[in-house]
Design a protein around this nucleic acid. Structure first.
Lengths: 356, 356
DNA sequence: TTTAAAAAAGTGTTCGAGCACGCAATGGGA
DNA sequence: TCCCATTGCGTGCTCGAACACTTTTTTAAA
């Protein structure tokens, strides 16, 4: 017997309280102008009937526009940023019904000045909410203060920054991420040797999360009596576009002939993979991050053995959704939303490329 | 300059076509009684303006109730089925606004008769849609025919059955799943030896997907010149609750002293793990499926090295959503929705336990 | 040409919540 | 007593789509 569930409406409450829906409405929204005894009676009935507003009718009526801003690096300069853009566009599409519109402010991920200029633009725009990839730590700080004062909620993603009062952070637990990388490499290491942590083409001073990854990685190899078997070294490998990492890697291999695994802490594993392939180094295990096209190629060729997916698409997607949850649906927001550490191989790659 | 994005309404289309919203409505719903030339004009305008109906207004108006049924095994008898239940309850909660209500029909996963009885109940109830875990292949077939005739769309999950005309299947690609398990084990295997595929406490005759997993697993070890290095054997290991798999596993080890890896094709890896732990067999690699509690324990103790998550929660969740997409939102449904093959270790387990 | 039937097109109400508006009752000051 | 401000409360329109209902136009038969 499937009985149709009764929905409690404002009108029902009004009838029961022998008053009108206008009055109930005023009580619900604390708009005042209601006699105390009537308010008490209405509140009691609301509780008794367990009234829950019909979100559908609610959002149909309100129809207000929510202008969100997204401050993200240019995907044309670093293809890693394509995914967050797709994610936020997907969320925007879903939420357009609710009046959400996202304006993108694209900056050059290699120039602090460009970031500052775009951040200023955001301030001028005065959006209802902001999604930001704060890859320039120092430069971003004063803006956080400003936006907080202006009452603009902002969601951080990709790079975790503590104590700046964002609505929430979306991304990975960098420390755990390092542990996981270590665990996987260790599972595939058959002989004692040296393991390299490589920070490729990234300014470490602005990227605390890469350091955190290294910590997690090193701590794993410190535990479980692995310290005697494996030596962990780390290196910043920077080079201009035309060159490759060849010179630096040659040097490292000369110093450590027993090098048998490399952990690349960002999406640039393909640079190392190209080097390994060129030199026929098939017995060095390689693990890196993110499903950018070049990484996928080498993953399919088994030059890169595993990739950890930071789910950049999900970061963009959930970032916009968190803002919507806060602004539109008035939901409580968890200050940290860690996304899963997805382990990717040739065999399960497909499922992580285009979500549903 | 943030211009408010114009939303295209039926009325807008009507105005542009110099007709009334009633006519546009008839065109949109193929209700006929519209002159051909007018219909053409309206369709052109709909395309041009890229009209998308406002789902909010739509569902506010219709307010009809959708009674869905879920035919699933009892979680109290096999805790694996807790997750699908949670998933479908989560989906139900999200969709309650749209009038969705899910009635659960719980059967005993060890008794065909119980399945048949509950399936009959479903038929009697005549729901608007059905989500079903068809673990009893032979017994389910006649019901599929019946439900098709009654016009009840049904979504299969967990077990893929071909050619019965479901709305869609939700679950994993079993073949790929086997390949992946092989790939991971092989990555950790340092010495030649024997690899066991174990079907634990499951009636193979009713579980084609376990066979498919084994195929994928074997094919991986056939490729890449691994056939000389590793021997793959398989075995059905069945035992009553009080006993363990000890006798059978002892025997297998006696015949294959070089056994160095075991692949359990269902969620019962913990049974094998208990055996390995008891006998101190720390150098046998073990991989299995699903995050049931016992598996988690042994994963944390590193007795189980990896688990592949079949995302049973997601299966329940998406199953209900697919029905809703079909019934309420009239979306085109892909006949197969493969869920990702998530690789789980101790380090990333947390992120897969409670979704978002 | 008239007329009825059929086809085509237009109008108006409904869903539940939000909010503007307006009316009635009360109170205080002159 | 009159006037106006304040408080309390009710009415009615709106959002966009769905659909029942009415009105207009066309077509075919007499």
């Amino acid at each position: 017997m499937s009985v149709k569930k009764k929905i409690v409406r404002i009108k029902d409450i009004a009838e029961r309280a022998q008053t009108s829906k206008g009055t109930v409405d005023r009580v619900l929204h604390n708009r005042g102008r209601v006699a105390d005894d009537v308010r008490e009676r209405i509140l009691a009935i609301i509780k008794e009937l367990n009234y829950e507003p019909n979100l559908i009718a609610q959002s149909l009526k309100s129809q207000r526009a929510f202008n969100l801003a997204a401050l993200v690096p240019d995907p044309d300069l670093d293809s890693y940023w394509e995914a967050p853009r797709n994610g936020l566009e997907k969320a925007e599409k879903e939420l357009r019904q609710y009046g959400v519109h996202v304006t993108k402010f694209i900056f050059n991920s290699h120039e602090e000045g460009s970031f500052i200029a775009k951040a200023r633009e955001v301030t001028r725009e005065h959006p209802d909410g902001l999604l930001i990839a704060p890859i320039f730590y120092k430069e971003a700080l004063p803006f956080f203060k400003e936006w907080t004062e202006m009452g603009i909620p902002y969601v951080l993603f990709n790079t975790q920054i503590e104590h700046v009062g964002p609505l929430c952070y979306i991304g990975q637990d960098s420390y755990r991420s390092g542990c996981l990388a270590a665990k996987i490499l260790r599972f595939g290491l058959h002989t004692p040797g040296t393991v390299l942590v490589a920070h490729v083409n990234e300014d470490i001073s602005n990227s605390a999360h890469l350091i955190t990854k290294e910590e997690g990685f090193r701590d794993y190899f410190k535990g479980e009596n692995l310290a005697d078997t494996f030596k962990v070294i780390s290196s910043e490998i920077n080079f201009p576009d035309e060159e490759g990492p060849d010179r630096q890697l040659d040097e490292i291999r000369k110093k450590n002939p027993d090098l048998n695994a490399i952990y690349v802490t960002n999406s640039k594993a393909f640079e190392v993979a190209a080097y390994l392939e060129k030199n026929g180094l098939t017995d060095i295990k390689l693990i890196g991050y993110d499903l950018v096209e070049h990484n996928q190629e080498y993953l399919k060729k088994d030059v890169i053995h595993f990739l950890i997916n930071q789910n950049p698409l999900g970061q963009g997607y959930w970032g916009i959704h968190q803002l919507a949850n806060h602004l539109i649906f008035k939901k409580e927001i968890q200050p940290i939303k860690f996304l899963p550490l997805d382990i990717i191989t040739k065999e399960n790659l497909d499922y992580y490329l285009d979500p549903q």
